[in-house]
Design a protein around this nucleic acid. Structure first.
Length: 200
DNA sequence: ATCTCGATTGGCT
DNA sequence: GCCAATCGAGATG
């Protein structure tokens, strides 16, 4: 398995976000390995981004991970759902990427059990759904996604297929920036908010 | 397409 | 105690 290098995460969150599309999220468990392709992400910045947990440099129990060096997992709960992020940027540069959707690839049965559905498109097509399917929670905070010993890892794409990247404003954000910071793979059916995509 | 209700946590007064 | 928060499911028209 080709793991993405630590240095990849030290770039700006927008750049990391776009380049994460198509890569694999891997979760190692007792008897199996879950795998999914990243198909939808959002970039978040630090002190000047009102939607960010690090807005105005507010350090809290939840946000403190964002000041660490890029490449670690950052997970917190919203509306009763765990959301999975990857910290980007150098130490003391609070930025991150929210992973919003995956395409299930390996151990799909395990995902179906956890999601209580057999509908493939409904397993990981949303930020709260994928954490349930992958059983991700705050105990993975700080995990190095570039380290081979970690339980949660980002690996290189399986194949070098071409895809188009589309962008939009971020989902569920009341005070968004005037830049489009949500990126997803065009025409991938596992991208969340399908009805929204149809809109102009 | 739009709404509405439930979900859990931590920050704040 | 109160309330917001990077959401999801189900009902309704």
């Amino acid at each position: 398995m080709n793991i993405i290098d630590e240095n990849f995460y030290l770039q700006s969150s927008e750049k990391v976000a776009k380049n994460l599309l198509g890569k694999n999220l891997i979760k190692k468990e007792e008897n199996c390995v879950l795998k999914g392709k990243i198909v939808e992400v959002e970039a978040y910045y630090g002190e000047d981004d009102p939607a960010s947990r690090a807005f105005q440099n507010r350090v809290t129990k939840v946000s403190r991970w964002m000041w660490k060096k890029g490449g670690i997992a950052f997970i917190y709960m919203v509306h009763g759902h765990w959301l999975f992020n990857i910290v980007t940027g150098k130490t003391d540069q609070p930025e991150g990427i929210l992973i919003r959707a995956l395409e299930p690839l390996k151990n799909i049965d395990r995902m179906k059990e956890r999601r209580q559905t057999s509908n493939l498109e409904n397993l990981t097509s949303g930020p709260g759904k994928l954490t349930q399917a992958f059983s991700l929670n705050d105990k993975y905070n700080g995990s190095k996604v570039y380290h081979p010993c970690s339980k949660i890892i980002v690996g290189e794409s399986d194949n070098k297929e071409e895809f188009k990247i589309e962008d939009s404003y971020r989902v569920g954000v009341s005070k968004d920036l005037s830049r489009k910071l949500r990126f997803f793979i065009k025409d991938n059916c596992f991208v969340s908010k399908k009805n929204m995509r149809r809109k102009k």
